[in-house]
């Protein structure tokens, strides 16, 4: 008996008890299905659940081999989904509705972010303490889908403001080029704090606090994919939700994975920022004091968003809630 053979037999006999069920299971299931997923922005803790599901083998366990395409300014997840460059995409609810309007039927498989993290931030020293103080001031807003809530907010408070298009940084706000800036709670807000402005020096307006809670990140798939491979879609969603649960349960692991993916894409960031982001994601994905089921889209939230879009004249075609949303629970 050669030495190699001996080692093989030894290790086989030793580890067969561990390996065998896995091998048998793998043999019992069909080979991993290759799918692609694109989040709407670059790798960061906003998408920690997906990266955790991918790196810790959760997708694999569900028979999936998921390639996560890095989103970003040059890669719109809506475009990728629309043009079939990705099987699954993370989109805002309003973006998903907008795709319907543009003629791309998409299905919401899970509503991940329940509470809108979009907000307006002003410096107290600029004299802005209440919504009405924004009247006539320079406000920087991002483009679609980020300007819908602000527009409704201004309307709600009857404000005339000078809107400027906001870049990807908050430098214009930091240099006092605008009085009010748009921000995501989990991202730009913390960037501003870590540019040396103390939280007590800021006035914040969360749209969610002004009856403008539009659910944000959700998992979308093209309607035909859903119709052709519902099991695949369910597997992806289940695995992704499990990824999120693991990310919240093991934040350090989630941060390690996030930082690794972030560096791979040469994203400028740091761990405390990602930690902040992950903690805030937990706040908006599983809002406290609500009877909430992870990944569930509430009909009320859906209606509020569609109403808002219709009233702004942004959409005419409104999909039926049951056609638009295909929850796991609907099985």
């Amino acid at each position: 008996m050669s030495r190699k053979t001996a080692i093989f037999i030894l290790s086989f006999s030793l580890f067969s008890s561990l390996w065998l069920p896995a091998l048998l299971g793998a043999a019992a299931n069909p080979p991993l299905k290759q799918v692609t997923f694109i989040p709407q922005w670059v790798p960061q803790a906003q998408f920690a659940g997906y990266y955790v599901a991918e790196e810790t083998g959760i997708y694999q366990r569900y028979g999936l081999k998921v390639e996560i395409i890095s989103g970003g300014p040059q890669r719109s997840s809506a475009e990728y989904l629309k043009h079939q460059k990705a099987d699954f995409a993370s989109l805002w609810l309003v973006t998903g509705l907008n795709l319907w309007q543009q003629g791309t039927a998409v299905v919401n498989l899970a509503q991940i972010v329940q509470r809108s993290a979009l907000m307006l931030i002003a410096k107290k020293k600029s004299g802005i303490l209440r919504p009405k103080d924004i009247e006539g001031r320079k406000v920087s807003l991002w483009g679609s889908p980020f300007e819908i809530q602000p527009q409704m907010f201004f309307k709600q408070y009857d404000l005339k403001v000078e809107v400027l298009r906001q870049s990807y940084s908050v430098n214009l706000f930091l240099r006092d080029g605008v009085a009010v800036t748009s921000a995501m709670w989990y991202n730009e807000y913390h960037t501003i704090i870590n540019a040396g402005i103390n939280p007590d020096e800021l006035t914040t307006f969360f749209y969610a606090d002004h009856k403008l809670n539009f659910p944000e990140d959700g998992i979308y798939v093209r309607k035909e994919t859903w119709q052709q491979q519902p099991e695949l879609c369910r597997a992806f969603v289940k695995a992704s939700l499990e990824g999120w649960q693991r990310a919240f349960a093991e934040p350090e692991l989630a941060l390690d994975i996030t930082m690794r993916n972030l560096k791979k894409e040469h994203i400028i960031s740091n761990r405390v920022h990602q930690k902040w982001m992950l903690e805030r994601m937990q706040d908006i994905i599983l809002p406290a004091h609500t009877q909430h089921q992870l990944g569930h889209l509430k009909r009320k939230d859906f209606q509020r968003a569609t109403e808002a879009l219709r009233s702004k004249g942004l959409i005419e075609k409104i999909p039926d809630f049951n056609i638009f949303y295909k929850p796991l629970a609907g099985e």
Partner: peptide, 27 residues
């Protein structure tokens, strides 16, 4: 380029300005 800091900030502030550092094309 209208929404890029190097263009937008000096335009709005109406003054010359040094930008925050950034990585060049080479990364």
């Amino acid at each position: 380029y209208r929404t890029h800091d190097w263009y937008q900030i000096p335009k709005i502030l109406d003054q010359a300005i040094w930008s925050e550092p950034y990585y060049g094309l080479s990364g």
